[in-house]
Simulated assay, not measured.
Amino acid sequence: MRSHVLATIAVVATSMALVGCATLQRTVEVQSDLDSLTKSGAVGSIATLDDNSTTTVLTSGVPHQTNGDSIGPRYRVRIAGVTKTFTAALVLQLVAQDKVGLDAPVQRYLPGLVPGDTITVRHLLQHRSGLAEFAGEPNADEWVAANENRTLTPADAVAIALSKPAQFEPGSAFRYTNTNYIVLGMLVEAVTGRSYADELRTRILEPLELEDTYLPPPGERDIRGEHMTGYADLPGGRTDVSRIEPSIPWSAGALVSTGKDLNTFWRALLSGRIVPENELTEMTTPHAGATEAEGLGYGLGVGSTELPCGVTYIGHSGGIYGYYTLSGATEDRAYTVTLTSTPKEQPDIVAMLSHALCP
């Protein structure tokens, strides 16, 4: 997983699919953002905007650099860290059902998994547990593992993290790590007695009819159906890295989805259809001192910021081999953008969000 680094994305030819009617200015500005990414060396990019009544899909570049095809409006991508918001939503549903306590020790639900009883469920959701990062280690690299035909269990991932010193005392600081959300996936399974994949499907994917969103099982390394290919600049040159081992990112970053599905998810989340009002307030309230790389204040599985126009954006970002996704919503609009290779110049995230979401 590469959770806060632009990992790959794309461009060369521009295609546009418009459904309904977005303002011309918004469309022009978002298209310009995508084209700038292409000019900066990205292979392809796709942005999906939703304003309640209409959906607009804009693209730049190509889905695969080996041919000149256009990017389709429902092409799937790996959404990486945006998976964490889905996991947080599952946990907060269990909190609302009095099956999990936000301030209860993790030991209550997963005895013996993490040391001591000072790490709470809230600490995991806020990345304040102090648990070290497991991802990226030689035996926990999803692209290398796919090439070597290896999988990784969640327990093994946690064991890798626990083999390193704690980063800080639980609750005393903020440090974004995938380990926190692997433990939360295990917690969902322990409390419900069902697999994380089953809970995700029955609680979120099926009720919202997110037909293009799925969690690949261990060993399923290719993306189903039409999708954008992810690329990385490796020592041997630009390389197709879209084939990865999903058991490594799992509940922290393995979901595959589309802009349309993600926008539907954010609209449902912020309207209270997934997480009840009390828990949603907890979820979307940033913790003091918890700030993501993109400058978003971090709550429970989501980031938030006030855009220059005064509207509040709630969302999450995610980077994994070949893909970087930024996805979220305001009260009136939802926006998802994915790149499939790293541009030479880092994009201005706040400007992109403002162009897509400000009135």
Rank of each mutant, 00 (worst) to 15 (best):
I71F: 11
P73C: 09
T305R: 15
M228K: 05
P286T: 05
V241E: 05
Y324N: 08
L269D: 00
T55S: 09
L92I: 09
A155W: 07
R267S: 00
S3R: 14
I223D: 03
I274E: 00
A155S: 10
G303A: 07
L210G: 09
V337Q: 08
D103V: 03
T48H: 10
T179L: 09
N52P: 03
T151D: 11
G322A: 10
E199Y: 01
A293S: 15
D33S: 11
T192F: 10
R333W: 06
V337G: 11
V144C: 04
R273S: 00
T312M: 10
L49Q: 07
S271G: 00
A104S: 15
M228D: 04
D348V: 07
Q107E: 14
R201F: 02
G289I: 02
C21G: 14
R238H: 01
G44P: 07
A13T: 06
R203S: 10
G41I: 04
D156L: 04
L58V: 05
S36H: 05
G315I: 14
G44I: 01
F265T: 00
C358D: 03
T179P: 12
D156F: 03
L102D: 08
A88M: 02
T258K: 09
A47T: 08
G237H: 05
T66A: 13
L90F: 00
I248T: 08
L152Q: 12
T153R: 01
A10S: 14
H287S: 15
P235A: 05
W143D: 07
P308H: 06
T55V: 13
H287C: 15
V256P: 13
G112K: 12
K260W: 04
H64S: 14
M1G: 12
T8N: 13
A89P: 01
G319C: 10
D51Y: 09
T55P: 06
D332N: 13
Y324R: 08
T27A: 14
A132E: 07
D69N: 15
R128T: 00
G253M: 01
A190H: 11
L58C: 03
P105C: 09
E133K: 10
P170S: 06
L34A: 05
A293G: 13
T325V: 08
P73D: 07
V5C: 10
A232T: 04
A268P: 06
A190T: 07
R175T: 15
A13V: 06
D50G: 12
A159E: 06
L296A: 09
A356Q: 12
A161D: 08
M1T: 12
V30M: 10
T258F: 10
L255I: 06
R2S: 14
S257K: 02
T55G: 04
N147Y: 01
Y214H: 11
E279L: 00
A166M: 11
G259Q: 00
S45R: 12
I349E: 03
C309W: 02
T258D: 10
T336E: 03
L215C: 14
T330G: 04
A132M: 06
H287I: 15
S60R: 02
T340M: 07
E148F: 13
N67P: 12
